[in-house]
């Protein structure tokens, strides 16, 4: 689960400590003011007289708030100054919010070619990441609580977010702006890998899809073609080049499907294809409920083999 209370990057921990300082400090001040108030009401007059003295007012009512605020002001401003700062040598990643999934693009970087994936952002640990976000249809909002603040995805506008993952792990991101019926089912994973593992992943993703050798899977590929899936989905290395839905070239390598709805395996893939409108009513992919069990297995098996 995502949590802003478990920071895994510099910005998130700065915001975390600011929140903690404010919350704990606020609670302490609230408790002491409340007890003084009760004291002022219930203590015998001669014992509570000091509360009304000029001195108490000057120290407690003027000096104390001025000193506290004078410390909090620079602290807050420094957090603000140091957060979300673009860094040299950052890895650029583009994320596009669509109803109800995330298109993720890795632009060409030196001799590494560009490719596109979905609902999963893989990042190397320790390297600054510069995410540019926009939206294809309505306003969405991109939020990875473990890495910092949220940022709006607005059609026709590019917003930027900078973060660095400090430790390997899987972090959940969510859409934080109501964007339609299935807004609540629009999540993604951020997977922070060691740099070498990230490079391997990147090299694999850039390759075109493998042609299936097993007859059942070849049948799946044929069903994919005949079913018209390729008008919405691209599988690089085949004739499927649709751009409307997620790129499926390496769909089998993803952790989840349906924007974080199910773990990715042959069963959930088959369930998804047959029942999209039941799983995510209103989603922009029709249910393929009329496929036979055999065909569904072949199709799902083919997708699962796209690693």
């Amino acid at each position: 689960m995502q949590s802003a209370l478990d920071p895994a990057g510099g910005d998130a921990s700065r915001i975390y400590w600011l929140t903690m300082t404010m919350t704990v400090g606020g609670i302490l001040i609230f408790l002491s003011v409340t007890s003084l108030l009760l004291y002022a009401i219930f203590a015998p007059p001669e014992r509570r007289a000091w509360l009304g003295s000029r001195r108490t007012i000057i120290y407690g009512g003027l000096a104390f708030p001025i000193i506290t605020l004078s410390a909090l002001l620079p602290y807050g401003l420094i957090v603000m100054r140091d957060s979300d700062v673009p860094k040299a040598g950052a890895l650029p990643i583009e994320v596009i919010g669509e109803q109800y999934w995330w298109r993720v693009r890795y632009p060409a970087d030196g001799d590494r070619v560009a490719f596109s994936t979905a609902n999963e952002i893989i990042v190397p640990v320790g390297r600054p990441i510069a995410v540019s976000v926009t939206a294809a249809d309505v306003i969405h909002s991109f939020w990875i609580p473990n890495f910092g603040g949220k940022i709006d995805m607005i059609p026709g506008r590019i917003n930027r977010l900078n973060f660095t993952a400090e430790r390997p792990g899987i972090y959940r991101g969510v859409c934080a702006e109501f964007c339609g019926d299935q807004h609540a089912r629009m999540a993604f994973d951020v997977i922070a890998l060691e740099p070498a593992a990230f490079e391997t992943w990147r090299t694999e993703q850039a390759k075109p899809a493998q042609d299936p050798e097993v007859p059942l899977l070849a049948r799946g590929r044929e069903l994919f073609r005949a079913g018209g899936c390729g008008s919405c989905h691209a599988v690089r290395g085949t004739e499927a080049n649709g751009q409307f839905g997620p790129d499926l070239t390496h769909v089998g390598s993803r952790r989840t499907i349906g924007a974080g709805q199910f773990p990715n395996n042959i069963g959930t893939l088959a369930g998804w294809i047959a029942n999209t409108q039941h799983i995510k009513p209103g989603v922009r992919m029709p249910s393929y409920g009329s496929l036979t069990g055999e065909d569904l297995r072949a199709l799902a098996g083919y997708l699962e083999s796209l690693r």
Binding site: L69, S70, L73, P74, L77, I78, M80, R81
Partner: peptide, 11 residues
């Protein structure tokens, strides 16, 4: 003082 400090800290 607060104003000067803020102007100095922020870019």
């Amino acid at each position: 003082l607060w104003h000067g400090i803020s102007a100095l800290i922020l870019p």
